[in-house]
Every structure is written in C-alpha cells, then in structure tokens.
Design a protein around this nucleic acid. Structure first.
Lengths: 348, 348
DNA sequence: ACCCAAAAAGTGATCGATCACTTTTCTCGG
DNA sequence: CCGAGAAAAGTGATCGATCACTTTTTGGGT
C-alpha cells in the first residue's frame, strides 16, 4: 500500500472532521460550488452535483451550523427560556415549541431560569447577541426574563393573557384563562352549588391573575361575592395544605383549582376530612394533565392546548424573523372544559 | 450636534450589535486585549481592564459564543437527544442534564427523536461535526440514535443497564432497574402474595429488559415460575387495557407496573372490576412521579433518581471532553422502594 | 463561424472570536 | 543609567462557512 493513493488526502489529522474545503479539494471544485450543492439555491450542473454529493458521502462530511450562522447564513437557531420544566404547562409548551422549530429546521436551545437569575446573566445565556428567543412566561422568573432581554433581541413569548388583551406587545400568545376559569365556575354553579372556592396557583403579575379574575367574573355575574381566595403553589402538597382547614366547613361544596396537581392535593385532603367526591364536594382542576382521566375519581378539568400555543409561539417568531409577514400562524385550540367524575350536584 | 463626537462611532448599522472590535476601538486597545479581559486567563493591567469593562457596559456588548466556539475556544455546548419528553423519566433526566450543564457554563440544545428518524438525519441535527452529545436512551428511538451517531462524536448516554454491566461502553450511566424490580417484587412476596404479575413498559433492547429480569429473578429465587408478562405501553390507558381482562381472576393479588402511569391505569381497571386496593389487590409502580404520593390510594413505588443520573451523565461527558480524567463524577441515589398505601397483604 | 446572453463555477472579503507569536512597556538590580 | 526579564498589549493566521462579484463555459440564433 503506497503512501498516496485514492484515499482522501491524509493531511487531515484524525481529530478534525472534513470541512467544505476538504470536499471541494477531493471533488476538484471550489468550496463555493460545494456550498451551492448543499444549499441548492443556485443551479449546479447535474454532473458536478453528483460528484460533490458522492464525495460528501465518502468523507462523511457534515456541515458546521455554527460557521454557517456566523457567516450570515439563514437564521436557524432559537433559545427557549423557561423556568420549571417539571410543571405540566411549561413542559407541554416547550414540546410544542420544539416540535415546530424542528419541523422548520431550527436548532432549539433550552435554558432554565432559576428564580434569582440576574438581568446580565440572562443576556449571557444567548449564543450570539441577536439570537432569537422564545420565553415561557407563565410565572415570575419567566416574566422577569422577558423584561430583562436586551431590546434588540427578537423574542416571542407564551404568556398569561394581558389585562387589556389588545394594544399590547404583538409578539405574544396566550390562552384565554379568564374565560376558561369563568366557564369552569359556571359549570359548578349550574350544578347547584351556592358558591365556588378557588385555590390559586402562584401569580406572575402584580395585578390579579386571569384565572382568578375569571372565577370572580362568573360569581359576580350571578350576584355572588367571591369568597376569600386560597393561595396555593404548584404542587399537590400545597393544594393539600391550602384547603385542609377549610374542609371542616361543610358549606364548602365546590372547589376550583389553579391546576390539576393542586386538585390532586385537594382531593386527598377531602378524603382525609371524610368528604366524598363528588357526593359532598366537587373539585375541578386546570390543565387536563394525562393522569387526570385516570384519577379516582377522574378529574373534571379544563383542557389547555399548551402544545398548540407553543407551536404558535414559534410561528410568531418565524414571522418576526422573516419580515415578509403574512406567514400563516398555526392555530391552537381554545380551552375546553372536560367534565368527569369529580364534579356533581351539592349534597341535598 | 456635530457629525462626530463622543458617541460610539455610528458606522455600525443599528441592526448589528457591538462586536469585540467595536469595544476595542472605543476603548482604544486591540481586540486581543478585550478578549483577555473577558476571558481573564492572562494578566491585564488594572487600568486597562477597568476601561474595557466600562466600554463593554456602555456598548451593551455581549460575546458571540458561536464565533468563540468556531475559533477553537473552549467547548461550551452540548446537544441532548431524547425521545418523548412527556415521559417522567426522560423529562427528569433532561432536567438533571440541563442543570449540571448550565452550572458548568454550557449551553444545552435539545432535539427530540421521532421514531422514524434516519441515521443521516441524526448527524445533521448537530450544530457542528464534533458537537458533544448526551443521549437519553431509555427507549428504542434513543438507543437507535446512540448507534447512529458518527464515531467521532463525543457522547455519553443515560441507558438501561447493560446485561453484563462491566466491559461495556464506559461512557454510559444507568440506574439499577433490575435490583429495584427484584426488591419491589420481594416486597410483595414478603407481604404474603403467592406470586406477582408484571405489566411491562415497552422494551428498548432485543433481549429482556432489566425490570422484567429483576421481577423474574425475585420470583425464581423463591422457586416461583414467573407468570406471563403483560405488555403495556407508557400511558395509563395502556396499563388499563393490559390488565382489564386479567382482573376477573381473583387469584391475581399483586401487580408490579413498569411505571407509575401504568399503575394508575391498573388501579382504575381494578376499581372498575370491583377490586379493592390494597384489600383485594396490591399495586406497585416505578418512578415515584410527583403525583404518586397523592393518588387514592397513594402508590407504593420505586423512587428513581433520574435527575441525579442526568447530572452524572453530564459529568461523564465533561470527563470525556477534558481528557485529564479524574474529574469527580457526581453521584446519584440508588433506587429506593417507597412503601405507601397501594400494597398490603393478600385477602385472607 | 461568430457573437452574446444565460448558466456554471471561481475569487476574495467577511462574520466574531481564539491562538500562537511578536513587539512594546514596565520594573528593578547592579 | 543601562540592560535583563517579566508583564502587558499587539499582529496575523485561522475556524468553516456565506455573500457579493467576477470570470469562464455553454448553448442558441443568425
């Protein structure tokens, strides 16, 4: 076996893989031509294209997206900022975003926001100064991160619905929590409950969260004063603790919960207090997490299309990046009340 | 207002943000010096450093990690390949990986594997040819992706424990599912059950999965022949369907499930069949998902430290990248059986 | 044959950093 | 007051691609 031969030139140390130049050299063309073959924008003669493709396969060439992006190629990169991915809503939104991004050929970076992240820190997580970003801003760290991003960063966000609805940042998407909470509350009232109590998830805004408002809306619309709000966290445990003392009061017959995990904790507290569900107490959740249909009793809850929202958030980002506008925005489903076993008429 | 002044030179179009050159020019030093200030490897005089830092703040300069990596800077980038992030184990592992990576100053990319992803496709998801990768290979798409990665890619993986345990790929981490399943099975046997049935999660290997083996181990060790395995999927629904017909048989008194979601489905099927848990039937899950403690009845399950495993997987990657070895590997907890309400002695 | 436009392929600069060297500036002993 | 050696700062090449131009080749029409 000779020193030289038909093998690819061995001046490439084994520790570095083939670049576009290596392909060009072996194929006997310029690297620009290789670039044309790869990107397929301009015409390349069929014979040249075939040879280049063959060399690419032989050398196991894989393009370097870093270099591509640096050199001003098309944007194909997005970072998602989110806080706790253990939460159903955030995780599902992230899935939707990732799916849509991957379908469009984007790489997705993810960076989890811990509560104490500083403003400077946020900017440094981006891989380049004007990296496109999506923020999942359902909670406080997310909302703060959204505010902490430098103004020249192209960003879209999945947020809690703003108060006014219109006239706000056009680069945000949301689900209509308020209407959904009102709907769930009306469902309970229509079953005959005198009033509905509410265990809230933590708030992301200084003003009243939308789910809380929707609950109040529905009560006030029928002339009922909303009872004191019960503040919960995100976990079953916090739901359990929030309602434990309340359940001794048999006049409490219906509880709406800010998410399904809280509802789980509430149901446990109810059983320990000797309350039957739905006989003595109706419980309604929020999210329609996968487990909710299989709980005992199965949980009446509001289905929220977080994945669809995530896809739309990416669609919006794409529209922002490609200024040509008029890119169709993926649609998402409106919240939908799923009635199951955990809600029923109040005890006689 | 004059054409020139103390403002930063306005030859920078507003659409591009400051680079290291801009900082250097305004600060009156070379870009190399700016680089030194930023990276702090070499000494820079205090006065120069201060001036550079000030200009950085004024210009809102943010380093471009793409360019840094391209130019041969330290690796600070990792892509995670995973399939379904809706699964508890995968999601928790991902969280651990992201946490450890972020702590080490790495950016984390995530790419979800759909079942049909081709070999070529996998390589193209990487941002550069030799991008460090972590694979969550608990299921078939993950295992295949691990096999499809080009050989020169530095990769570590969280996997199901290999059969032989040692002598295998040293760049993999796993939890001892087999021992855990055996332990859970022994728990049920020690309560007095004659045998234990098993509803399996889908398998990632051609040979018998570890949880299945552990279950068989424990039965055989006491001279009991393992009953036919019940094949489930990942969802509560699949658990429900897998055992529905079985439950008419009152001699079935203990069921071990491959994950908590399956257990949820099994418990529902049991109730519909009029079986009391744990009076008539004991159910044990796997994962200790957050809901399991609050279910009715609360679920006896095996706690698996997926987050710790994810952190360790990243630690292993770091060790692989920095060949100096001897980097301490984060430890993770061994599986632990959490006994709750859903398991008890068989009916008399 | 001949010329010209369109198609195909090549050239050089650039993106924003790092690296390996080289040059300039201090600091201090003799 | 000079020179040695260390500390500080600068220079030019490079990473792997793209972009805007320029040059060469190809294919018709006359």
């Amino acid at each position: 076996m000779g020193v030289t031969g038909h093998m690819p030139p061995d001046d490439t140390p084994p520790s570095r893989s083939a670049s576009i130049w290596d392909v060009a050299r072996v194929a006997g063309v310029s690297q620009q031509t290789v670039s044309r073959v790869i990107n397929g924008k301009t015409r390349v003669s069929e014979s040249t294209r075939a040879k280049v493709m063959q060399v690419i396969a032989e050398l196991g060439y894989r393009p370097n997206r870093l270099a591509r992006t640096l050199a001003g190629g098309p944007v194909s990169w997005v970072t998602v900022l989110t806080s706790d991915t253990a939460l159903f809503g955030a995780a599902a939104t992230l899935r939707g975003m990732e799916e849509a991004a991957r379908a469009a050929g984007f790489s997705v970076g993810i960076s989890v926001l811990e509560p104490g992240a500083s403003k400077t820190d946020i900017a440094l997580r981006l891989n380049r100064p004007q990296e496109p970003v999506m923020v999942i801003a359902y909670d406080d760290p997310g909302v703060r991160a959204l505010g902490a991003l430098p103004p020249d960063v192209p960003v879209t966000a999945a947020v809690e619905r703003p108060d006014n609805g219109a006239g706000d940042d056009p680069w945000q998407v949301w689900l209509d929590d308020r209407a959904a909470a009102a709907h769930a509350t009306r469902h309970l009232l229509s079953l005959g409950h005198k009033t509905v109590h509410y265990v809230a998830i933590p708030s992301s805004t200084s003003s009243l969260p939308q789910r809380t408002r929707g609950w109040q809306d529905a009560l006030r619309a029928t002339g009922r004063p909303p009872p004191d709000l019960l503040q919960g966290g995100w976990t079953p445990r916090s739901g359990y603790l929030a309602v434990r003392s309340l359940l001794a009061d048999r006049s409490v017959t219906a509880i709406l919960c800010g998410n399904d995990d809280l509802a789980l904790g509430v149901m446990r507290a109810a059983r320990e207090a000797g309350r039957d569900i739905p006989g003595d107490l109706s419980v309604v959740g929020f999210d329609d997490s996968p487990a909710s249909a299989y709980l005992h009793p199965s949980l009446t809850t509001v289905r929220l299309d977080f994945e669809g929202l995530g896809r739309a958030c990416f669609g919006l980002l794409l529209r922002r990046l490609r200024a040509e506008g008029a890119l169709p925005l993926p649609t998402w489903n409106e919240p939908e009340l799923i009635v199951r076993e955990s809600s029923g008429p109040p005890p006689a």
